[in-house]
Amino acid sequence: MEMKKIVVGMSGGVDSSVAAWLLKEQGYDVIGVTMQIWQDEEETALEENGGCCGLQAVDDARRVAAMLDIPYYVMNFKPQFRHSVIDYFIEEYTCGRTPNPCIACNRYVKWEALLDRSMAIGADGIATGHYARVCRLPNGRYTLRTCAAGIKDQTYALYSLTQEQLARTLMPVGAYAKEEIRRMAQDLGLPVASKPDSQDICFVPDGDYASFIEETTGKTFPPGNFVLSDGTVVGRHRGIVHYTVGQRKGLGLSLGRPVFVQEIRPETNEIVVGGGEESLSRFVQAERVNFMAVEDIAEPVRAFAKIRYNHRGAWCTVEKTGQDRILCTFDEPVQAAAPGQAVVLYEDGCVLGGGTITGSR
C-alpha cells in the first residue's frame, strides 16, 4: 500500500519529533498532530501534567513543527481517552487486576481514534515515534519486529494493533538506537533534543494511583487483611487499590522473610501474600488474544514470551484453549504473572500475538 500523506502523532518528545523529520526527508507529505487527551481544561493543571498530555507537550510539538515547516494541529480525543483508558484503568484496579493503560491507549486512542480522524482529513496513514518496526511477512500478514535498540523496544505495548492499523502505520525511529535519535535532534537543533523521556502514566504523574482512583470515583477503599494462602491473617492493608500482584515493597509487613503480593481478592477485601517461590508459575492463561504474525494457531507453537514490559522474556509452548483464549506453558517458572497485564509472544524477533493475563499456576 503506497502512502504519501502521513499524520505524525507528535507528543512533544524527541522521538516523535525526529520521526516527523525522517519522514519529511523521505519525501512524505507530513502533518504534525498532538492528541489532546487530558481531562482538565485548566491551564495550570495541564502544566502540572507533563509527558504526552501536558500543555508543555503542545508547545514543544508546535515549535518543532514550525522548525520542520510542516502543518500542525491539536486534536481533541478526550472522550475516547476517558472511556478507553481512564475508565478501564479504574475498573481493573478496583477488580484487583493490574491494568496496562499504555496498551489500551495505543490500541483505541493513538491508533483507532487518530487513524480514523487522519483518514477523514485525507491522510493515507499515521506515524509515531515508537521503537518498533512494521514489516510484512511472506504470508501477507503485517506484524511488528523488535527495534534496533533492544533495550528501548516498545513492541510489548503495541501487540494489540490490528492488521488494518499496521498496514497504515510507519515507525521510522525503530531502525535506530536512542542515542542516534538524540544525536539527530541535536544536529538539527531541535529544542527537544535533550528532553527527558516520559516515565510515569501520563494522567497519574505522581504515581499515586490509589489517590487518583479515589478522587476520580469519589469512593474509598477500606483497609482489610493481609493473609497467607492458608488464610492466616498476618497484617492489615490500606485498601486493595494500593497494591498489585508481585509487589514486595511498601507492604509494611515484618514476617522475617521477604513476601510478595500473590493475589488480590476484592470480594473479601483480602490480599494474599507469600514467599518468592509462591510467586512462580509455569502456566499462564490469557484471553482477548490478538494474533499478529499469524491469523490463528491450530496446533501448539513455541514462542518467546514477555509477561510484563520489563520482563526479559522466557520460552514457552502456546496452545489455544478456547475462542480468544490461550495457555502458555513455560519451560521454567516465571515470577509474578499479574492478571490484567499482557503476555506477548515473539517468534523470530516478530510479534506473534498476545493477550490479557487472566491467571497463572
Rank of each mutant, 00 (worst) to 15 (best):
E287F: 01
V192H: 02
L280A: 09
Q247H: 07
W38I: 06
Q154M: 06
M35L: 13
T128C: 06
G189A: 06
E48L: 11
G246L: 10
G12K: 04
M35V: 15
T356H: 04
V85E: 01
H130A: 09
K219E: 06
L137G: 01
D60I: 11
V192Q: 03
P258Y: 02
A167I: 04
R133N: 11
A66R: 11
E214T: 13
Y176H: 08
F77R: 00
E332S: 09
G218H: 14
K219C: 09
R308M: 02
K4T: 10
A104S: 14
L68V: 01
G27A: 11
E295N: 10
A120R: 13
D15S: 02
I240H: 11
V245C: 06
I240V: 15
I90R: 00
Y28N: 06
E287N: 10
Y156G: 07
M171Y: 14
V318H: 00
Q56V: 10
L280V: 02
S118D: 05
Y73R: 14
V284G: 05
K24G: 09
A342M: 13
P222Y: 07
K306E: 07
H311N: 10
R282C: 00
E47P: 01
S118L: 09
Y108T: 03
G27K: 13
R141P: 03
T34E: 00
E215M: 13
I271W: 06
A149M: 03
G359M: 03
G275A: 09
P196L: 01
V351R: 01
Q26P: 00
A57G: 15
D206K: 09
E299H: 10
D208H: 14
G235C: 11
V204R: 10
P99T: 05
T155M: 00
G313D: 04
V289K: 04
G9E: 01
V192I: 12
D230T: 09
V259F: 12
C147Y: 14
F89A: 09
V8P: 01
N100H: 15
V14W: 02
W315A: 00
P266K: 07
T216C: 05
G54N: 08
R308F: 13
T329D: 04
Y156D: 03
G276Q: 09
A113S: 12
K178Y: 05
D29N: 14
L170T: 04
N106I: 08
V273I: 00
M292T: 13
F221A: 06
T244M: 09
E214A: 14
T162N: 08
R312T: 05
Y176K: 08
L161D: 06
E270W: 09
I70T: 10
